[in-house]
Amino acid sequence: MTSVTMTVNGKSVSGDVEGRTLLVDFLRNDLRLTGTHVGCDTSQCGACVVHVNGEAVKACAMFAAEADGADVATIEGQANADGSLSVIQQAFQDHHGLQCGFCTPGMVMSAAALLKDNPKPTEGEIREYLEGNICRCTGYHNIVKAIMAASGQDVAAIAAE
């Protein structure tokens, strides 16, 4: 067992992990932060995307031990301090960017990472960026629309409610 300490959503946490323990398992099982999901075992679905030191990372593709000392952000820490939804979260609700909700935490975390680097992405840039996040419910229409809206773009012309 290895002892790890990291900051998760602004709080210092620590625990003992096996070498093979993935970051996503540490978050879900040890810290009980179950908002980060596991949808595949080949690092492709993106349901487990979190931020590690400000970068979007698939938490199934990183050992917990590798995150020792890191600053980790998960979906549980995305809302505003008063509990209201962040701009991106609110846009997902306003534009029906989620259905079953399972891929949603990863989508929101990816969207946040995208908008940090590219504050006004085009439709094509958003679609390309989301290559690593699979959604089976929405057909992506309203996810792309929500991210465009969250970046301040006018989405009224995009068809449908």
């Binding site: 549980e76 995305q78 939804l85 609700q93 989620l98 079953c100 909700g101 935490p105």
Partner: peptide, 17 residues
């Protein structure tokens, strides 16, 4: 707007796993 979104968007959903 969907009320269930509030828990899904904040990581508060309760899935079987």
């Amino acid at each position: 707007k969907r009320r269930e979104d509030l828990r899904f968007l904040t990581g508060a959903g309760n899935y079987t796993d």
